[in-house]
Design a binder for these strands. Structure first.
Lengths: 145, 145
DNA sequence: CGCAGTGAGTTGGAAATCACAACTAAGTCG
DNA sequence: CGACTTAGTTGTGATTTCCAACTCACTGCG
């Protein structure tokens, strides 16, 4: 009766870290190799203070590292850790959804490619049989406490 | 020289619609079959006013429909459209990332399953050869304007 | 030296969002 | 009638975000 039935699921937990405004755009830039602060500011369009805060948070959660790329004057760039780079599928799937459902004026300006030259594609498959999952053949299961 | 080099990519466009706080948690609930306002409030923990605003925005973008499930008094529930249901991979991949990198106290409370009984798994593959893409064998390409 | 330039932030104040609780509305049930 | 249900809306603060300007630590030029 006095139960809080708020779902503390992995989706919510993930969004607590990368769900703030600008965060995934920062990750997108880092994946693209745009590693410096001013570059990130220019490419994302976010304001400097917020982007600085996002970078700090990503660093705290060990998704990026701050690495000096020169001394005198010391200048830092941000590199994705393995953990951070594992957000690639998240960015890919968002890009893909946008490509499919929100036609831009002249196609996507950023394209990730496999080494064979073709574009990336995110799919949801069954863990066991490996089959692609279509909208209907899935069930949702809830472990209520 | 007066160039704005802000990337107007699909990632940014997608996040403009589903990137606000609570939006993807609402989608998660709808995917789980929790279609009524009070249920969504209870399960997500968001405040009523914001959730009402998110539902309106999702409806405007044709990701959900407001359907009367009874007359006298008229009561509505929200159903994902095909377009909206296509966000399933986004939610799946966020859940999966959280499962892998943010261990919850006692495992994920929400599980999607394929009809064969196994869990879902999101992968990024090459569009052409179908091979899973590992972190390194990809290149980023930018169409600057 | 003096001064413009660069890169990486920080600061201050206004504007927009969010959170929370209380309230409304339309009807049902006892 | 009064209590209850569902689906919101409203009012009032608290938080975030936005934006421009400013700092700091140096470099490179004349």
């Amino acid at each position: 009766m006095g139960e809080t039935s708020v779902r503390e699921c992995s989706v919510a937990r993930t969004l607590e870290i990368v769900g703030e405004k600008w965060t995934l755009l920062v990750v997108r830039e880092l994946l693209l190799g745009n590693l410096r602060f001013d570059g990130i500011v220019a490419r994302t369009g976010g304001s400097r203070d917020i982007l600085a805060a996002r970078l700090r948070k990503l660093e705290q959660h060990d998704l990026i590292e701050r690495v000096a790329y020169q001394e005198r004057p010391v200048r830092y760039e941000y590199r994705l850790t393995a953990r951070g780079a594992s957000l690639q599928p998240v960015v890919t799937i968002l890009r893909e959804w946008g490509d499919a459902h929100l036609a831009g004026s002249d196609g996507p300006p950023v394209v990730f490619r496999h080494s064979c030259g073709a574009r990336l594609h995110a799919v949801v498959v069954c863990e066991a049989c490996g089959e692609p999952v279509s909208g209907d053949d899935l069930t949702a299961e809830r472990k209520d406490r």
